[in-house]
């Protein structure tokens, strides 16, 4: 499941296990610098390059996974 993969990326970058599908990245202490690391990891893992603005609009593993899926050819 893509959402599990995105959740794992959140956990690694935020250095916390407390991440669920609906956890908001910024509410968990994420900031723009850490967000770029998530986007870098997503690009490597799924081959999808999202922008920072995309991330701001989809900052939970669930919404982000849907965004990646819709961008995947």
């Amino acid at each position: 499941m893509m959402v599990d993969g995105v959740t794992d990326i959140f956990r690694r970058v935020l250095e916390t296990g407390e991440v669920g599908t609906e956890s908001d990245f910024f509410a968990l202490g994420g900031d723009s610098l850490l967000a770029t690391r998530v986007l870098s990891a997503i690009a490597r893992k799924y081959g999808v390059e999202l922008s920072f603005d995309d991330f701001v609009l989809a900052s939970t593993p669930g919404t982000l996974a849907r965004r990646i899926a819709s961008a995947t050819p």
Binding site: S32, L34, A35, T36, R37, S40, A43, L50, S51, F52
Partner: peptide, 20 residues
């Protein structure tokens, strides 16, 4: 809005991942 520069987030993220 915010402090994030209008540059490729993935490219900056790659850099921050390497630095990390």
């Amino acid at each position: 809005p915010g402090r994030f520069p209008p540059l490729s987030a993935v490219a900056l993220g790659d850099m921050f991942e390497l630095l990390d």
